[in-house]
């Protein structure tokens, strides 16, 4: 009898202390990042940014990375609906396309979950803010590097897929910045490689043969740079033709080191994820001052992560090289 009593008291004490402790602990908050092609290096960078932002905000912030491994907007929409059931404190979403997620995002907002889009927007939805990359500026950053490398004169070619929105914007920004800062440089031709590295090589070869005055090639997407570098190598004109790539996939990094790609323009996925997390937190914590999106807190509607140049010289620093060569994994 006595012993039983002690056991009961002890058990009660344990239960009470657990409840007591949790009462003192800060309430946990969950923020979900939802992407398409989950596992892609790019989104791992964005999630790394989100995780670091959560660390700054405190131990009570939990994050998770969700979404289909496929590039399938319908699957991503389902994921949003299922994550919304958990009533996370905020969601940050990279939209697989701008239309399909609209109903799912709106349902989440209607349930009081702040939704921030990043990387790819869903402008027709009720999402509170978009954290993205200004592709026009991305192209302009490439143009500045090109202008300096060519000493302000010569002819150049742009690799892109006509009709693809982000590449069109990058090309437009590139041309405009050349015209503004380096009027001595002329865009001689547009090379359509259909976003494929092998096509980039053959099409660039043809373009360089047709017009030997082309001294520079700028690729508006990740695969064009290595393709153009291969074309320049085949024609034996390494050093004579400047190749500027986009993004920092493995092949681009290798060719930056050998110098066959002079520079690459990078956007900042880490910062996109970081900033999206911060926005989601802001939106989940309204202040007394009325916001534009009641009942949510204050967030600007749009912010850009910015673009910058990486050169082979930068990669000489082992710390920097290591950073790009070992992308985060989740």
């Amino acid at each position: 009898m006595h012993r039983k009593f002690i056991v009961v008291v002890l058990a009660l004490a344990i239960v009470m202390s657990v409840f007591g402790l949790s009462a003192f602990a800060q309430e946990k908050e969950l923020y979900s990042m939802i992407v398409f092609t989950k596992g892609a290096e790019y989104f791992n960078w964005t999630y790394a940014g989100m995780v670091d932002a959560a660390k700054i905000l405190g131990d009570h912030i939990e994050t998770e990375l969700q979404g289909p491994a496929e590039w399938d907007a319908s699957l991503e929409a389902r994921t949003i609906d299922q994550v919304a059931v958990k009533q996370p404190n905020g969601m940050v979403v990279a939209s697989a396309d701008e239309a399909t997620l609209v109903p799912a995002i709106n349902r989440a907002i209607d349930r009081g979950i702040p939704v921030i889009t990043f990387d790819n927007d869903s402008p027709d939805s009720k999402r509170l803010a978009y954290v993205g990359t200004d592709n026009y500026d991305f192209g302009a950053v490439g143009a500045k590097a090109m202008g300096e490398l060519l000493g302000g004169k010569g002819e150049v070619a742009i690799i892109m897929v006509p009709g693809a929105g982000s590449m069109e914007e990058r090309a437009a920004g590139f041309e405009a910045e050349l015209a503004r800062s380096f009027p001595g440089i002329k865009v001689a031709t547009i090379i359509n490689d259909e976003g494929d590295v092998a096509r980039a090589e053959s099409a660039t070869t043809a373009a360089l043969l047709a017009n030997p005055n082309i001294k520079g090639v700028f690729s508006t997407h990740g695969y064009g740079g290595p393709g153009a570098a291969a074309a320049v190598r085949t024609l034996g004109r390494v050093g004579d033709v400047v190749v500027i790539a986009s993004d920092y996939g493995g092949p681009v990094l290798e060719l930056l080191k050998t110098g066959e790609i002079a520079a690459t323009v990078a956007d900042n996925p880490y910062l996109l994820g970081f900033q999206a997390m911060m926005f989601a937190y802001q939106a989940a914590h309204p202040t007394d001052h009325p916001s534009q999106n009641p009942p949510f807190g204050h967030v600007p509607a749009l912010i850009y992560g910015g673009s910058y140049i990486i050169t082979g010289e930068d990669l000489q620093d082992p710390e920097i090289a290591n950073l790009y060569e070992n992308p985060p994994q989740f």
Binding site: P68, E70, W71, D72, A73, A77, A96, A99, P103
Partner: peptide
């Protein structure tokens, strides 16, 4: 039904 649910349609629907 997918068109009705998503108010849109795309060639990337139904991967796998």
């Amino acid at each position: 039904l997918a068109t009705m649910v998503y108010n849109s349609a795309s060639s990337n629907f139904g991967q796998g």
